[in-house]
Simulated scan of single mutants.
Amino acid sequence: MSVSITVFLLFIGYIIFSIDKKKENFPVPPILVIIGIGLFFVPYFSQISVTKEIIYHVFLPGLLFVSAYQFPFSDFKRYAGIITFLSTAGILLTVLLLGTLIYAVSLPFIEIPFIGALLMAAILTPTDPVSVVSVLKKSADDDLIADVVEGESLLNDGTSIVLFTFISGIYLQTQSISPMAFIGEFLYVSLGGIALGGVFGWLFSQAIHYTHNKEYQVMLSIILAYGSFNLAEFLGVSGVLATVFAGIMLSFEFGRAIREAHFREALDGFWGVIEISILSLLFLLIGILAADYLIFNYWGLAVLVFAGSLIVRLLVIAGATQLLPVWHKKMSMSECVLVSWSGLKGSVSIFLILSLKATGADGIDLIISLTFAVVLISLVVQSIGVHPLSKKLLG
């Protein structure tokens, strides 16, 4: 992608985010995605090539880090049980149930193997709340829903990637079915990423005390965000979880060091610009990349899969929170519905789609088209619906 195209896309993002500041609850993600689809039909933009490495190694670490360090550690601690369940066991259960549902509803349309249906479910499971969190905080009386949605999205990306890697290996016949091997790999990748991120976050939180220059301190945050991610990937553990826990550890240490308030201001200023820049590029590129796969004959199936993903997510969340007394007291059924609705598909799903595309395997075009379609429906419908739904359920 050339510099001129990048600048033009950023300019579009600037316009849309400026409108968002002036109009309450303006649906930024779907607007940018729709503009991106339109740009695909302009010859200048139709040849844009974006690799999974750009999404994974350039966009994702920045988005994860800014969300993690801004997420108060006290909130994470308060809802740790629900967040941890939803981002681990909840993910596994969701993939199994959604994969089974996809396999069943696809039979009248086209034959998708069961492992292919599970692969689609793994792609569609990670959540990416983006601007939804700010809407939830404005609409709800407390931050419970926004905190659970944001905390879950930070942790479930790592689980989803490990699960996708395992299932795609079986689908592509490069890996045998071995539950024990999956559990061992999952624990190594996840716990290794968490440990690495925690250590890096603590070390860098101590290092900032050795300089009072805000510019140098912000440089350290860039090194922390991207350094922890890439080192973790090099060591074979989760770069996603490493960056997330590096940010969470940094947030925890800042909460104990009031004298570093000036650094948090500098960090917010820098990463605030980075966040909206990445989001602008990401959503526009999602539209441009998806457009080539959206002319196919199974939009009815895509709508059913989208509806099924919402139902399965609600069943998992409501089942866990309403059956356990300790969680039932914290989250009502209305809040479960809103948490379920707020789980948009986004950046990680796109990375997984591009990863599958990069394999060049036979028979994956339909899976790619279907998952692209479901991601787009999710971004448009759920982004637009979250404000009126929150007002209806909690207003």
Results as ranks from 00 to 15, higher is better:
residue 218 V to S: 01
residue 229 F to H: 02
residue 181 A to I: 13
residue 211 T to S: 15
residue 183 I to D: 10
residue 195 A to L: 11
residue 183 I to S: 10
residue 176 S to N: 12
residue 221 S to T: 08
residue 192 G to Q: 06
residue 217 Q to P: 04
residue 218 V to L: 00
residue 230 N to D: 14
residue 209 H to R: 10
residue 211 T to D: 12
residue 229 F to M: 08
residue 186 F to R: 05
residue 228 S to F: 00
residue 207 A to H: 03
residue 194 I to Y: 03
residue 170 I to N: 03
residue 219 M to Q: 09
residue 187 L to D: 09
residue 218 V to W: 01
residue 214 K to C: 09
residue 194 I to C: 00
residue 211 T to Y: 06
residue 183 I to N: 11
residue 178 S to H: 08
residue 208 I to S: 09
residue 194 I to F: 00
residue 220 L to P: 02
residue 182 F to I: 08
residue 216 Y to L: 14
residue 193 G to C: 00
residue 194 I to A: 01
residue 194 I to E: 06
residue 222 I to G: 10
residue 218 V to G: 02
residue 208 I to R: 07
residue 202 W to F: 08
residue 220 L to Q: 10
residue 189 V to C: 10
residue 203 L to M: 15
residue 212 H to D: 14
residue 225 A to I: 02
residue 209 H to D: 13
residue 209 H to V: 15
residue 172 L to H: 10
residue 207 A to E: 06
residue 177 I to F: 15
residue 186 F to M: 04
residue 173 Q to E: 15
residue 208 I to Q: 11
residue 177 I to W: 07
residue 228 S to M: 03
residue 228 S to R: 01
residue 191 L to T: 05
residue 182 F to V: 11
residue 205 S to D: 06
residue 218 V to Q: 01
residue 225 A to K: 01
residue 215 E to F: 12
residue 184 G to I: 14
residue 181 A to P: 01
residue 191 L to P: 02
residue 202 W to T: 11
residue 221 S to C: 04
residue 186 F to L: 05
residue 174 T to V: 07
residue 184 G to V: 11
residue 212 H to R: 15
residue 207 A to F: 10
residue 217 Q to L: 11
residue 205 S to G: 03
residue 226 Y to K: 04
residue 217 Q to R: 00
residue 226 Y to T: 07
residue 215 E to W: 14
residue 223 I to M: 03
residue 184 G to S: 15
residue 193 G to F: 00
residue 219 M to A: 13
residue 195 A to N: 05
residue 191 L to S: 03
residue 204 F to R: 02
residue 176 S to V: 12
residue 171 Y to K: 05
residue 220 L to W: 09
residue 191 L to C: 02
residue 175 Q to Y: 12
residue 188 Y to A: 13
residue 210 Y to S: 15
residue 223 I to F: 08
residue 204 F to L: 13
residue 231 L to D: 09
residue 170 I to D: 05
residue 198 G to E: 01
residue 200 F to M: 15
residue 203 L to H: 06
residue 182 F to C: 07
residue 193 G to A: 01
residue 206 Q to A: 07
residue 175 Q to E: 15
residue 175 Q to K: 14
residue 228 S to K: 00
residue 216 Y to M: 12
residue 172 L to T: 13
residue 180 M to L: 15
residue 189 V to M: 06
residue 200 F to W: 09
residue 189 V to G: 03
residue 195 A to Q: 04
residue 174 T to D: 08
residue 229 F to K: 00
residue 181 A to F: 10
residue 218 V to D: 07
residue 216 Y to F: 13
residue 190 S to E: 08
residue 218 V to H: 01
residue 226 Y to Q: 05
residue 197 G to A: 10
residue 219 M to I: 12
residue 211 T to I: 07
residue 188 Y to P: 10
residue 211 T to K: 07
residue 225 A to P: 00
residue 214 K to Y: 14
residue 225 A to S: 11
residue 213 N to L: 13
residue 207 A to N: 13
residue 208 I to F: 12
residue 188 Y to K: 15
residue 216 Y to V: 10
residue 179 P to K: 03
